[in-house]
Simulated scan of single mutants.
Amino acid sequence: MELKTRVDREEALAFLGHRGQELGDLRERLERAACLCEKELVPRGVYREMDASEALALLPGLDIARHVGGCTRVVLLAVTLGTQSEMLLRRERALSATDGLLVDACASSLVEQAANVLNGHIMEEAAARGLAATTRFSPGYGDLPLNCQPAFLVASGADRALGICATAAHLLVPAKSITAVIGLYPGRGFVREGARCSTCPVADTCALRAQGRTCYGNPA
């Protein structure tokens, strides 16, 4: 499925390590890079829902087990900017090292925003069935190893539907791709067993905690 979204300019700057420094003409060049990505790249995504026990058989590690603790269903999702993103990045890097970096950062933001759009779609579908969703958890977080990527791509259908593959080092190709796991659990009034911010490996970067909320229903 195509995912309609835009580059978050501030997020792109954060990927570049911007901490409030004066940008000068880089602001205009960043805008060009963002518009280029939005014009030439088409984010696409796929997801597959399965029983939690089936998903955990594919996903080794204690952290992912804790993350989806109490969940009855698990969603495997993948998003990508496709092979066109590889060609765009090669072209821009060849023309200018600086513009290449800017386009790379904007492409990273675009794929992250695409993952957010698909995430929101999954949450809406889950809510219509009386289910709530955890935050995303990707291979490489905590002790969920990158070497699960090949099996993940096959199980989610991302290999066939999106053309994503993994290298011998378990990195995704196209590089501007994201895989992630979302747990689904009964909604209102239900607290997932064992779910606590104090034991979550992504607590420090959790968007819900930043809003004073949690994925399990109690104050952070």
Rank of each mutant, 00 (worst) to 15 (best):
A114I: 09
A115V: 02
L118E: 00
N119K: 09
I122D: 05
I122P: 00
M123W: 09
E124R: 12
A127R: 11
R129H: 06
L131F: 08
A132F: 09
A132V: 01
A132E: 08
T134F: 07
T135D: 09
T135R: 09
T135I: 00
R136T: 00
F137E: 02
F137M: 00
S138A: 10
S138G: 06
P139R: 01
G140C: 00
Y141Q: 02
D143V: 02
L144F: 03
L144C: 00
L146D: 03
N147Q: 02
Q149R: 15
P150G: 05
F152H: 06
V154T: 12
A155E: 01
A155N: 05
S156T: 04
S156W: 08
D159C: 09
L162K: 05
I164K: 05
C165R: 15
C165D: 13
C165V: 15
A169Q: 14
A169V: 12
A169P: 06
A169L: 12
H170I: 08
H170E: 10
L171A: 09
L171C: 04
L171G: 03
L172V: 08
P174H: 05
A175G: 14
K176E: 08
S177Q: 10
I178A: 09
V181E: 10
G183N: 11
L184W: 06
P186A: 11
G187K: 15
R188C: 12
F190Q: 10
E193Q: 15
G194A: 14
G194L: 14
A195Y: 12
A195D: 06
A195N: 08
A195C: 15
C197V: 09
S198D: 13
S198Y: 07
T199A: 15
T199Y: 11
V202Q: 09
D204M: 13
T205W: 08
C206L: 10
A207Q: 13
L208R: 15
L208Q: 09
R209F: 12
A210E: 14
A210P: 04
